[in-house]
Each structure stands twice: as structure tokens, then as C-alpha cells.
Amino acid sequence: MKSFIGRRAISSAVSLGGLIVLVFFLTRLTGDPTNLYLPLDAPMEARDNFRVLHGLNDPLIVQFGSYVYDVLHLDFGESIRKARPALEVVLEAFPWTLTLAVVTMGLVTLFAIIIGSLAAARVGGVFDRLSGIMSLIAASTPEFWVAIVGIFIFAVSLGWLPTSGTGTIWHWVLPITVLFIRPFGLILQVVRGSMISALSSPYVKTARAKGVRQRAIIFVHALRNGMLPVITVIGDQAAGMLNGAVVIETIFGFPGVGKLMIDSILQRDFSVVLASIMVTALAIFIMNLLIDLLYAVLDPRIRY
């Protein structure tokens, strides 16, 4: 197990390294950063000073070296907008996104598993039809539209919930609800399919022959087997959210990584963009590792 984590860490380090290189060259591909950072009418001296200050006159390899050195020391440079270390800015925003993602995915998983399992237990029954309708709606509704309509109904007309921002627990309700819809519809279908095949497996027959109750058959015997493919999809969806739910965070003025990244890109605050990419990449790596470990916990046949 330890060697597995070690191997995974090494392979992730390699991908992170690739990402670091890619980010460097992509930012350089967009041309001389001087033109991006400084206003169009900046005088020549200011441009020269800027170049010297940031080593932009050095050969590319030297620039790359110092860039890598800085990144390895977790020094992503200063945020131009906030005049603070970029990493600090990102680490302030990240917990908001993390909480949003964890709470939303937790709710999604809980509801999808319960409804999906009950749907699978009686194909064609009430829960099955209900889950079919719900997942169809969930899959075909644009998030931004739900967000705006939600604000209009619950914040503007009814005045039950705040329109945007943070502060109280009520501020979380709309963003979480809107984010919930799409992954819920998807994972509900995956749970249903996976549970239908688990419930038709021979070991379920054995359980019935033993006299096990239907509820225990569904939630003890079949569910643990049925969860394996579901976890993969949950991980995939969670990764998307960790990247920042850009649209939702923007609409609700939520101070997470997604909003930070969009704002920084618009204002050419590249050090913040870089720091955001690195932090979320690391978070996704850790999450994938946890998922791999969860596989081994759920299925004893999987050993690393």
C-alpha cells in the first residue's frame, strides 16, 4: 500500500512537472508579457525596466530555470491586482470552492445512491419513473438559467434567500442547489444501472435463499458492489467542481477559485492564474488518490 502511494506520488509529480512546463510555454506563447502587463501607452523606459525586473531579457532557458526554481519554492510571484503573494490569494479562495464542492458532492452522492438504488430494486416502479424524470430534467437544464431563475424567485420575489455573496449559511443554499442538479442527474443514472446489474448477480440470489431482507439485500449486498463504477464518476464530477464552478461562482459572487481565476485572467494577473492551476491540480491529485484507496476499501479483490 505504501509503495502504491509512493508510485502514485511519483507519477503525479511527473504530470505536475509537465503542467508546470506547459504553463510556462503557453504564457510565453501569448507573446512578450510586457505588452500584456503594461498599459498600451506605457513609455519605453517603463517597458525596459519591467523587462529587466522580471528577467525577460535573459535567454529563455535561464528564464525557465528561474521560473521552475520559484515554482518549486511555492513562489508564484505577486498578484498585480492585490499586491500580495499570489499563493496567499489563491489559498484564501480555495477553501470556499472546496467546501462548496464537498457539500454539493456529498448531497449528490447521498441522494443519488438512495433514489438510484430504490429505482433499481423495482425497475419500472415509482422510484424508477421518478428517477428517470429527474435525471432527464437535470441533464437538460442549463445551470446559469436555473441560477438566475432561482435568484429571481427565491431572492428577489420571495426574499427568502440572499441574492449573492457570503456571510450566513443561507448564502450557500442557492449555489449548492444549482450545482447539485447536473451531477445528481448523471450519478443517479450510473447508480441505477450499476445497481440493476448488482441486484441481478448470483450472490444476491444466495442472499435471498438465505432469507435476507430486501432492504439489506439492496443496501448491504448489492450497494457495495454497485458503488465501484459510481465512485469513478463521482470523482470525475468532483474534479470539475474543484476546478472552480466558474459560472455559478460568478453569478452568486462567490469568492472561490473559479471566480478568482476568471477575474485574474481578465485582468492579466498571471501569477494568480499559475498559483490557482497548481493548487487545484494538487487537490485533484489528492482526491484521485483517495478514490483509489476507496476502491481498495470497498473491494477486497483490489490490492495495490
Partner: peptide, 23 residues
Amino acid sequence: RDINGAKIAMIFQDPLAHLNPVY
């Protein structure tokens, strides 16, 4: 259910498939 397993029990052809792999 009370009779199944207690009074009438059953064994099957392919025991690997008929035992739950994760318990």
C-alpha cells in the same frame, strides 16, 4: 423469508459468483 435458509437451504453451481465478493 423465515423458511428460506432456516428450513430450506440452497447451494448453487458456481460458488465464486454466488458468494458476495466484497464481504
